[in-house]
Nucleic acid binder design. Structure first.
Length: 259
DNA sequence: ATGGCAAGTGAAACTTGA
């Protein structure tokens, strides 16, 4: 089973590009972030034509997440528990049915910039809530994949120019610490487990020629429960997508689980 | 050293992203 995550930076502005990638890569499951539309405006029919079941947690203008799966999605949850006042659409969870079901969580973790503001506080609070929820899911002792745009650069090796990110919310000690705390619950970073080579970037800014200069960062991650990590067979960063037509600033990352 | 792009909204210029 191949499970993808991709921050598409508006699914409707990029629909042709996104569909072309789905036709070629044909993931079994995909979590999309920053769809930037309400549920009713999500192009569900286009994905259904490609054989996908669709679950959407949308929002007008900002954020928005979706999950697509070739097999039916069960137990769909929209929104991260722990704060009923949180109106951002940043979390979707479902059990992907099949011979060996996998629970998949798609996240769009808050950016948190600029630091020293309520935005950074919101980011850290969101990470705390994710930690609490993940702890509960891990207690189920089942295959679990939490993937998405984490907006965290875990280590200096995950940035081409780490010194340029020192003042950024993505690289603050608190952000990195919260990401480590998540892993310390017993979750495995799929890329680090199977590859771990510095330079596995997943995002390049549109500005300042970041792509041609390879000024990238690794911020899109798959974290796996032990039961999922045992089945991990491959991790693939679809880097070439960044050089294509009308690209998102993030590229798809795909993992493969046995069975 | 600095800034440089893209998308949504809504119809110019602001907000957001990372």
């Amino acid at each position: 089973m191949r499970i993808a995550t991709w921050n598409v930076n508006s699914v409707n502005a990029r629909l042709e590009t996104v569909l072309a990638w789905f036709e070629e890569a044909s993931p079994d499951v995909a979590c999309l972030q920053e769809i930037k539309c309400i549920d009713e405006k999500f192009p569900a029919e286009a994905f259904e034509r490609l054989g996908y079941n669709v679950a959407v947690h949308g929002q007008k203008t900002y954020n928005g997440v979706a999950m697509l799966s070739k097999t039916p999605l069960e137990d769909v949850r929209k929104g991260l528990p722990g704060d009923d006042g949180d109106e951002h659409a940043r979390y979707i969870e479902a059990v992907v049915s099949g011979p060996s079901p996998v629970r998949v969580c798609g996240i769009y973790l808050p950016n948190g910039n600029p630091i020293g503001t309520e935005k950074f506080t919101y980011k850290l609070g969101w990470m705390k809530r994710l930690n609490t929820h993940a702890r509960g899911l891990l207690a189920l002792e089942e295959p679990l994949v939490i993937c998405g745009d984490y907006n965290v650069i875990p280590e200096p090796e995950d940035a081409d120019k780490p010194e340029g990110w020192l003042g950024d919310a993505l690289f603050q000690p608190e952000s990195r610490g919260a990401f480590r705390a998540l892993k310390n619950l017993g979750l495995t970073d799929a890329y680090m487990q199977l590859d771990g080579t510095p330079g596995g970037y997943t995002f390049w800014d549109y500005q300042a020629g970041a792509w041609p200069r390879n000024h990238g960062i690794r911020i899109d991650h798959h974290l796996l429960s032990p039961q999922a990590a045992d089945r991990l067979r491959a991790v693939d960063i679809h880097r070439d997508v960044r050089g294509g037509e009308k690209p998102s600033d993030h590229v798809p990352v795909v993992i493969e689980l046995a069975l």
